[in-house]
Structure formats: C-alpha cells, structure tokens
Design a protein around this nucleic acid. Structure first.
Length: 527
RNA sequence: GGCGACUUGGCCGAGUGGUUAGGCAGUGGAUUGCAAAUCCAUGUACAGCGGUUCGAAUCCGCUAGUCGCCUCCA
C-alpha cells in the first residue's frame, strides 16, 4: 500500500498507547496467543481471543504481511491434576477430551488460522532447558525440588501490569516457606506421590504455570516476537511472569506488542470468571438462563457452548463477538445472539438475491474469489455510482481495521454496503432472469466480490447459513414439500382465492416457515 | 487497601474537540390483493457538577455508580 494514511496502529498494553505497527522483520509477523488450560469444556469467554486473533491474522495477511499464529494448549497443571483425582482418570485423558472440545468449538466459529498449536507436555525438554538457563543466569533458584523465579533479580518486574513488588502477596500454601520473596513464582513443582511427573535435574516434577508459554513461544517464534495476546485477566500474573522469564533468559524484550482482549460478562450479576470452574460454569449458566428466560423460552436447557452453537450457529456467535471492539467488555446474553442473528439475516437475504440473479454463490470461494491482499482488492469503479460508493465503503472498512482492529466500526460499513446493494437491485429491478452479461449485473458482481473480500477478513459467510437440524436429504424433502404448497397457493391466488392462499401462508408461518412473495415468484425461509 | 477499565438515545454498540456511526426494536411512507422482504423518512443520546476552549460525548478536575485485576481464570 502506498497510502501512508492507511497505517495500522495497535494498542500496546505495555505502553498503554496505540502505536504504529512495525514488525521486527517485515513482512513476517509472529503472533502468540495464550490458549486454554484444558481441564474443562470451554465456554463463550474462551472464544473471544481465538476469534479476534484469527481475524487479526487474516487482516495482517490482507495488509501484505506473512503472519504466523501460535496458540498453545496447556495440558499439565494443578487444575488438571485435581480433575484427574476427581474423575479418577489420567490427566492425559482429560486433556485429550477437552482439547477435542476446544478444537470443535473453534472450528464451528470459523477459527482456522492457527499455524501451531503446541502442547506443554510435548515440550518438556524445552521447558526444562529454559528453567536450567534461568538458574544458570541467576534469575531462579532451586529449593527442595521446587524451582522459583527470583523476582527481585528482575528490575523490570511489574512493567506490564504496573505493580509494585511490595504489594505482591504471591501464592500461599506450603511453597511460600521455600520462597525468597513472596512474589516469587514456581517454574518447576516437585511431584507429590501419584502425581503425573517428568524427570528433571531437580527431581521428578512438573512445570509451573507460565513457563510453558515462555518455552514454547521461544521455540517457535524466537527471542523476541511481534505480538503476544490473551485475555485481560492473564495480564497478571501470567503474562507478567512470562515476560520476566523470557526477557531475563534472553536478555532482550520478549514481545513488541502486548494485546489484551476484554473479558466477557454474563447477565446482570453473573460472570464467566469465578472461583472454581464448577462454580464458574454454574454461575455463567444460571445468569445466562436468567437473562434469557424472560423472553426466549427455547433457550432453556443447557449444553454449554456447544449448546449455544447448536441454537445460534457459529457464524452468529462469531459475528456477535466481532460487533464489539476486542478490548471492551462483552456483555453476553442469548438475546444479544438472537439480535445478531436478525442482523445477519439481512445479509443472507441479499446473498440469496445475488444467487438468483447471477447464479453465483456468495459463500463459495470458487464463484467469488476474494482478493487476498489490499492491493489485489483495489478495483476500478469507473463511472458506476454504486461501485464508487462501494470503493468508499471499502476504504472506511479498512481504515477502521487499521485503527487497532476496530471490527465494530468495520461492520457498520458492511451494513451500509448491504443497504446500498439492495437499493441498487431495487432501482435496476435486477431479479432472476436478468441479463448476466449486462453492465448492471457485472457491476453487482464486482461489488459483491469486494464485499466478499471484506467479510472474509472477518471470517464471516464462508459457509451458507446453517440450517438447524436435518441432513441434506431431509432438507431436500422439506424444500420440495414447501414448494408444492407454494404452487398450490399460487393457483389459489390466481383464482383470487386469497383466503386459501393466506391460510397456507399463515399455517406455514406457524410452523416456522416464512414465504416471501417477489415479482418473479415466491421463495421461503426458516424463521 | 493497591492498580486499572467503564458510564452514549427503548436495548445493543462505534466515536479522531466543530460534519448522519451502525444494528435491533418503534413510528410514518413507497411497494404488495393483504402480508413478509426491500427501499425512503424518522429519535432534543452522550452519569452529575465544575473547568479549559470561539466550540467538548471527545481534554482536565471532583462526585456518584458499574466492573476487572491484585489467589486459579481466555
């Protein structure tokens, strides 16, 4: 891009400022996002980071960079060990189950940009080596089979979360007695009998929380990399400690841009973060239900995140998340998801109109191959007013994304685009049977191709709207049945028997099928 | 107690000191046999008080309220 005004800026938690984005080694961009500790099924809150970072990676590529996205899986940890005792099954089994659940949810939300997904247990050598280096360099010490990071040795400790060492309480318990100062944190924890453990220079044990991220990010992305992301709740202690470990070990900054997404809140009083995971899940579920039960009766019943996905589709959830800026708190409610769905329906209807006119699918990348980069996506609007507006909307969209990935603002351009296109179709009376080679239709295709470019950055509309329930066969059967009714209604109306026609429409409406009369015929959709 | 974020019209939600955010819902109109869909039009919004400024939702201060982190959390 030659236009200097369209420079990407990123809010850096470390400096608390929006800074121009300048990768360390352009065009390469290394991104590390803290993934989950896989001890329980994921909830909505776990999806915020992956969705926004998936989008960020897409946008960086669109901006001409070559981003690499790493999301870790922490599969050994105190909580996993507790869970393992509770359920009487091995840590590895829980980790495998919960990782599968996490991945399935990501897939549903269209998160498909992750390049590496390292697991802590696959990197035990790297972790141990990392700890050994920290001890050698004097930043860590062993104490009776445990290894701690010596916080006072790091003059910059607290820089990320803006904290004084004096205020730190540190983790209590039996480990506290072994620590030199309260703020010291464990790099290696000695194993109690019966616990999962690995051999190390300090005896049998397992890594502390934080060190796996330092080790794995270093392994894949190097001493210093461009972007490190995660939820705001991870800023302290997790990221602060990661930062301390890595910067001390390699004697250089760990990360250039620290990015933190806002947390999700449920309902009025409930929250998605809590004490134990059980309580947390229960609290979230309760308040969600409480908020939703007032108006949306069918939202009753649980099923966690996968239930939500079933009820609302992954696209809807993804859109719901991207409507808000990533740094703000998202207030979760099923009503909010419903509303997001209503908003999305307008796009689906436009894409239906588009398909009727052109025979092309908006969803299929083959019919409308979107531009991969900004430069590639530039198009000549000529003297076509609609295309000129489209070019303007595209510019606004990209400008919004350049401003710290303001997806909420970017989305508003898409809505403007939607209305503009419908107006265009109305004015030119473009409908099924239109001359495909005409200038009007060709301009429409150019416009929607550009729109596709932008929706692809957000990861939206990559698939046709999911129809709840039913395989392809029953879908087809249903379609034929409804069309039969539409035909009968048509004959009735041709005979001015509106009572029968309306009865068919009304009764279909009662079972959730809406008929849409258009000049060129009647189509139907689910409600 | 320490650190920090937030408070925008009925609801959700953007917002770079002066120009329409956008969505959902509502109202009026066009269109329609009637609807739906679509289009057009439509809202004395910026927690309160004080200050800076020619001008503030946007900067500063105070007050009130909501929330987060400081212990495990995306």
């Amino acid at each position: 891009m030659t236009n200097a005004a369209s420079q990407l800026r990123i809010y850096n938690t470390l400096t608390k400022e929006k800074e121009p984005f300048e990768p360390l080694q352009a065009p390469k961009v290394g991104i590390y996002l803290c993934g989950p500790t896989v001890y329980a099924e994921s909830h909505m809150g776990h999806m915020v980071g992956p969705v926004i970072f998936d989008t960020i990676k897409r946008y960086l590529r669109h901006s001409g960079y070559q981003p690499v996205l790493v999301v870790n899986i922490t599969d050994v940890d105190d909580k996993l060990i507790n869970k393992s005792h509770e359920r009487g099954i091995p840590v590895s089994q829980i980790a495998t189950e919960m990782t599968a659940d996490y991945l399935a949810n990501l897939r549903e939300l269209g998160v498909n940009q992750i390049d590496y997904m390292p697991r802590a247990t696959d990197h035990m050598d790297d972790i141990i080596d990392f700890i050994r280096q920290l001890i050698e360099k004097g930043f860590a010490y062993e104490a009776d089979g445990d290894v701690f990071f010596d916080v006072v040795k790091d003059p910059n400790y607290g820089q990320l979360s803006n904290r004084n060492l004096d205020d730190q309480l540190g983790e209590g318990g039996g480990a506290a007695a072994k620590k030199r100062s309260a703020g010291d944190f464990a790099l290696w924890k000695s194993a109690k009998p019966g616990e999962i453990s690995w051999e190390s220079p300090w005896g049998q044990g397992r890594p502390g929380w934080h060190i796996e991220c330092s080790a794995m990010s270093h392994k894949i992305l190097g001493d210093t990399f461009d972007i490190h992301g995660g939820g705001l709740d991870l800023m302290f202690p997790h990221h602060e400690n990661e930062l301390a470990q890595s910067s001390c070990c390699h004697n250089q900054p760990m990360v250039k841009y620290w990015m933190h997404n806002g947390l999700m809140r449920a309902g009025q009083k409930g929250k998605l973060g809590g004490k134990s995971d059980r309580e947390q899940a229960a609290a979230a579920e309760e308040s969600v239900e409480e908020a939703a039960s007032a108006k949306i009766s069918r939202s009753k019943g649980d099923g966690g995140l996968s239930g939500l996905i079933q009820r609302h589709t992954g696209t809807r959830i993804r859109f719901f998340l991207l409507r808000t800026h990533y740094r703000s708190t998202i207030l979760f409610s099923e009503e909010g998801l419903e509303e997001a769905g209503t908003a999305l329906d307008g796009f689906y209807r436009l894409f239906d109109r588009f398909a009727e006119i052109t025979g092309l699918s908006f969803y299929d990348g083959k019919d409308l191959t979107p531009a991969v980069t900004r430069e590639e996506g530039e198009f000549d609007a000529g003297d076509n007013e609609m295309l000129q507006q489209a070019a303007q909307l595209r510019a606004s969209y990209l400008q919004a994304m350049d401003d710290d990935f303001n997806t909420g603002l970017a989305v508003s351009s898409l809505f403007d685009w939607l209305r503009m296109t419908n107006r265009y179709l109305d004015q030119h009376q473009l409908a099924a049977g239109a001359e495909t080679q005409s200038a009007e239709v060709q301009a429409l295709i150019t416009s929607l191709k550009a729109m596709k470019e932008l929706t692809t950055i957000l990861g939206l509309f990559e698939k046709p709207p999911a129809q709840a329930g039913g395989d392809d066969d029953s879908q087809e059967l249903l379609d034929k049945t409804v069309r039969l009714l539409i035909d009968l209604r048509k004959s009735a109306r041709e005979n001015k028997d509106y009572a029968t026609g309306d009865a068919i429409r009304d009764r279909l409406g009662e079972i959730g099928i809406a008929l849409l009369d258009k000049k060129e015929g009647t189509s139907w959709e689910r409600q």
